[in-house]
């Protein structure tokens, strides 16, 4: 303890002054020299400058990406682009089927993930007692969150498309995306449930409510806004994913809009990939690619922004 206290007092973390004799050190501690004080200050200022630069680089990167997409994409966006299907081997026309497809897939994913995710979070936060079972379940969730998106694609292909015979379809894609979104929903729901004060639970139980009545009537209503925020983030995540739907739901081109959940569909992220790498005229359709990317980013970042602002207001209200 003593030793670490002394090290704390050593001025200038990386200066050579630490080599001075102990006697001198003692005196310095009581009366620090001006030169050393200045060195410490300069050192700190430059380090903090570095921190700031690092943060600025992130902001700049986001700004540059958005700048390029907006500057080159907005010209492509007009009423026709948003409301018409692609024509002439996807070199002209709009992206309506992709927008609809992405909406179907992300909504489908959330329909799968939200009930399961919220129920899992309820178990983890309200029922589970610490122990090996809980540890295993948590390990499962953490590792599920870390599974690469392409592996989810392989999984969806093997299970939903092939084994269960759903084919390349909205259903297969939504189930695959749902499995991938599950950890996001569980995480957000758990956070929301944790934020509900224990006194609510105690008050309700103290009045003779059962555990389930307490969860259903007190805890869930109080946690609902937080859970909804998580759901919005989950939709955003599902809408932007490409790899899991490549083999399970999305197709290069579909002449008609989907009419059932067993239909294959087009989707915004896959459309960007296809136009940019395998389209018939990659260079000539750049503006369409930028336009599609801009629509996707507006959709995804818009959803995220809504969730972030909503959550910030929520936190402020909870104080």
């Amino acid at each position: 303890m003593n030793e670490s206290e002394t090290t704390l007092m050593e001025p200038g973390a990386m200066s050579s002054s630490a080599l001075k004799g102990a006697e001198k050190e003692q005196n310095d501690m009581i009366k620090p020299s001006h030169a050393r004080e200045r060195r410490r200050r300069v050192f700190q200022r430059s380090a903090f400058g570095l921190f700031r630069i690092a943060a600025a680089v992130n902001g700049t990167a986001l700004a540059i990406i958005i700048y390029f997409l907006v500057a080159r994409g907005w010209r492509a966006i007009n009423w026709t682009f948003l409301t018409q299907p692609p024509i002439d081997s996807m070199t002209k026309g709009g992206i309506l089927p992709c927008i609809i497809g992405t909406l179907c897939l992300s909504m489908g994913a959330i329909l799968v993930a939200l009930p399961i995710g919220v129920a899992s979070a309820i178990y983890l936060n309200e029922y589970a007692r610490p122990g090996r079972v809980l540890r295993v379940i948590r390990l499962g969730i953490n590792n599920l969150a870390g599974v690469p998106s392409i592996v989810f694609g392989l999984f969806g292909l093997a299970l939903f498309v092939v084994l269960l015979g759903f084919g390349v379809s909205i259903l297969s894609g939504a189930l695959t995306l749902g499995a991938m979104t599950l950890p996001v929903i569980i995480g957000a729901s758990e956070e929301a449930l944790r934020a509900v004060p224990d006194t609510y639970r105690e008050a309700s139980l103290g009045l003779g409510a059962t555990k389930w009545q307490t969860i259903y009537r007190v805890v869930l209503p109080a946690a609902l806004p937080g859970i909804l925020t998580g759901a919005i983030l989950g939709i955003g995540r599902a809408a932007g994913e490409t790899a899991p739907i490549m083999f399970t739901a999305a197709v290069f081109y579909s002449p008609s809009l989907p009419s059932s959940i067993f239909d294959e569909i087009m989707a915004l992220p896959y459309h960007i990939y296809v136009l940019a790498t395998a389209g018939t005229e990659i260079e000539a359709t750049r503006h369409l690619q930028y336009g599609t990317a801009l629509v996707l980013i507006v959709l995804v970042l818009g959803l995220n922004l809504v969730a972030i602002v909503y959550r910030a207001r929520l936190r402020r209200r909870l104080g």
């Binding site: 992220p269 940019a276 995804v300 970042l301």
Partner: peptide, 30 residues
């Protein structure tokens, strides 16, 4: 960072996380 900057930058980092990978790939490509 001051509290105000923190509240501004944290969402930016989150938005960076939310960028769809296909868009980042597209950006890297073009």
């Amino acid at each position: 960072a001051s509290a105000r900057i923190r509240e501004l930058v944290k969402p930016i980092v989150e938005l960076l996380a939310a960028l769809p990978s296909v868009v980042i790939g597209f950006f890297g490509m073009v």
